Simulated scan of single mutants.
Amino acid sequence: MAIFKPWLFILLPFIITAPFAFTYYRKKSMGYLALVIGQVDKVENSTVYLYPNKIIINNLQIISKERLRYAEMTKHTRNQYIGSGMHSPRESFVIHIGYIDVEGKNMTKAIVSRENDGQGSDYLRFCEELNSLVGYVAPKGPTLPHEI
């Protein structure tokens, strides 16, 4: 027989909202606009912070806002065979950040997510925030049939 436990209804909302509150206050105290975790320069679990005036990669590499050019996101999907004729879709996301390095050359840095890690919306928000910060508008391709 189930026993009514009123303390459960008081404690349950705190348990559910605690991770969201922690993330919000951490973001507010550190001052970053967006955060993604992925592979950068063959280093797994790299943390990339987007601040209003710079990008910081692994707390080691800094790219200032003046040198940032654009950010483009792509999604890669592949089907992995899991047995008995079944396939499982595997998704990963890649952000390409275009910037000018210290020597004045155009460079690109790629941030690759792990497969099926659920960070697609974080990658998209990071890309949109960075593009709005630098004023980049992605070129639209032709919508009418045309010869190439």
Rank of each mutant, 00 (worst) to 15 (best):
A2W: 03
I3R: 10
I3M: 13
P6A: 09
W7C: 04
F9I: 15
F9Q: 12
I10V: 15
L11I: 15
P13S: 07
F14H: 01
F14Y: 06
I15C: 05
P19W: 07
F20W: 11
A21Q: 05
A21P: 00
F22Q: 09
T23E: 15
Y24S: 10
Y24F: 15
Y24E: 13
Y25T: 15
R26C: 05
K27R: 14
K28F: 03
S29A: 09
S29Y: 03
M30P: 00
M30E: 05
M30W: 01
G31I: 06
G31F: 01
Y32S: 00
Y32V: 00
L33E: 10
A34I: 03
L35R: 12
L35F: 08
L35W: 08
V36P: 03
V36S: 08
I37P: 00
I37W: 04
G38S: 04
Q39N: 14
V40A: 14
V40D: 14
K42Y: 14
V43T: 15
T47A: 13
V48L: 02
V48C: 05
Y51V: 00
Y51L: 01
Y51N: 02
P52E: 02
I55Y: 02
I57W: 10
N58V: 13
N58S: 13
N59H: 12
N59D: 15
I62P: 00
I63V: 15
S64D: 12
S64E: 10
K65Y: 02
K65F: 00
E66L: 02
E66A: 03
R67D: 02
L68R: 02
R69C: 04
R69A: 08
E72V: 12
M73L: 11
K75A: 12
K75Q: 14
K75M: 10
T77Q: 10
R78E: 12
R78G: 05
N79I: 06
N79S: 11
N79E: 12
Q80H: 07
Q80I: 11
Q80K: 14
I82Y: 05
G83K: 08
G83P: 07
G83Y: 08
S84K: 08
S88R: 13
S88F: 12
P89A: 10
R90A: 08
E91A: 06
E91C: 04
E91Q: 09
S92Q: 07
F93D: 03
V94P: 01
I95D: 02
I97F: 08
I97E: 13
I97C: 10
G98V: 07
G98K: 05
I100E: 12
D101N: 14
V102E: 14
V102L: 07
V102C: 01
E103M: 07
E103V: 09
G104W: 02
N106D: 14
N106S: 10
M107A: 13
M107T: 14
V112S: 11
V112Q: 08
V112I: 12
S113D: 11
R114Y: 07
N116E: 07
N116T: 06
D117E: 13
Q119K: 10
S121A: 10
D122R: 11
Y123G: 05
Y123E: 04
L124F: 11
R125M: 07
C127Y: 06
C127T: 15
E128Y: 06
E129L: 03
N131Q: 03
N131T: 07
Y136P: 03
V137R: 09
P139T: 05
P139L: 04
K140Q: 10
K140M: 09
K140T: 11
K140L: 09
G141M: 03
T143N: 04
T143F: 02
L144I: 05
P145K: 01
